[in-house]
Amino acid sequence: MKSHYQLVILGGGPAGLSAGLYAARARLDHVLLEKGATGGQVLLTDWVDNYPGFPEGLTGFDLVERMAQHAKRFDLNVELACVTRVDLDDERKKVLHLEDGSMVTCDALIICTGARANTINVPGEQELRGKGVSYCGTCDAPFYRNMHVAVIGGGNTAIQEAEYLTKFASKVTVIHRRDSLRATKIIQEMAFANDKIEFLWNKRVTAIEGSNAVERLQLVDNDGSTSSLEVEGVFVLIGVTPNNAGLPLEQLNADKWGFIPTDIESRTCVPGVMAAGDICSKDVRQIINAAGEGAVAVLAAEKYLQGLH
């Protein structure tokens, strides 16, 4: 790895890979820094049926693999690195501090660090993580063959994962704090038609219990009544939290949840710093707008870089 690049793309999910494709084709002096394999949260998605150009649908795994291959065809430069702190104090030179103590600097930066699953922060959640508490149905469903599991949440991810879990589990109970789902209608229709899926409305989980594995959930209804539910696994799928560790949030004017505001050209309030994908402060977090923002961000970066000389 060099010590300075014109452009650093931070993170290798759909936004980062799309930015990488555009940067590589623009022949910018660039690097994409990723702490593991490229892919991001899409790697957790068992099936993607809403990305244009793939009429049969495909797995999240295959989609990001294709995105990576596509960018690599144009010589996208990817390096394995974990960035611990981003320093934007110098107007010209953005400084990235890496886990191994070294530094990389750049003229322009595109932040594509994405988001990760929220936790529900109830007793038992941490202790039983990996012992019945899961955040990825696609990853862990096969461990629950013929068992009764619960899914917490009512959005697309929760309902799609509930559907996937029925391939293995004997019964899937969806626990939602409201009386209707937020998920896309076609996903709701499939779930309501699936007789292995049962819905518990207007309820929240207050504790996850079990001695060495999940045994039951404690629930409270919106009317205040309490109950418990015997399950062998619980999948927590209640939205995302930004991967913003090490970013100067105040300088980037982050919103109250820690997501970063951008303008229509994917620029943040710091000159030369763009953001794309799930890290952005926005209402819609889909693969397609992440990829779109990645492209827009590179065009903004190019414009910025041209202005420097």
């Binding site: 702490k35 593991g36 394999a37 892919g39 899409v42 790697l43 957790l44 998605t45 999240g60 795994f61 394995l80 990825c136 696609t138 990853c139 096969p142």
Partner: peptide, 11 residues
């Protein structure tokens, strides 16, 4: 078939 397993592979 596990995405996060793939992600952690290079590490």
């Amino acid at each position: 078939w596990c995405g996060p397993c793939k992600a952690i592979g290079p590490v």
